[in-house]
């Protein structure tokens, strides 16, 4: 372990490509972790919509539009994470 650390400390160069690599890693982590929440939320909304359609098939049209609207709202946090990822990739140097 110690030899690995000393090896890393000797070989790592803290130059711009190192920073770029970490920024890209951060971008991937941001989208990956933040994608969990909206995915769960959208799935939950879709499941509830399916339940509601089963109970009241004649209201399917309204249920669909409400579901799509709710899912678009739930998507927002994921979109914010995506914006952070874009910032990290294209703006951070």
């Amino acid at each position: 372990m110690r030899t690995l650390l000393t090896f890393l400390a000797e070989t790592l160069e803290f130059n711009s490509s190192f920073v770029k690599g970490l920024a890209c890693l951060g971008a991937g982590l941001a989208v990956g972790i933040a994608g969990i929440g909206p995915a769960i939320g959208q799935g939950f909304a879709a499941g509830k919509a399916a339940e509601a359609t089963g109970r009241q098939p004649e209201a399917m049209k309204q249920i669909r539009s409400v579901m799509l609207l709710g899912q678009a709202m739930a998507e927002t946090t994921g979109i914010y994470a995506l914006l952070i990822a874009f910032l990290l990739i294209f703006v951070a140097k």
Binding site: E75, T76, I79, Y80, L82, L83, F86
Partner: peptide, 16 residues
């Protein structure tokens, strides 16, 4: 900001 960034992020992600 929430209104604008939501729209911006959605359309930008599609474009990219």
């Amino acid at each position: 900001f929430s209104l604008g960034l939501r729209l911006f992020g959605n359309i930008l992600s599609g474009t990219v």
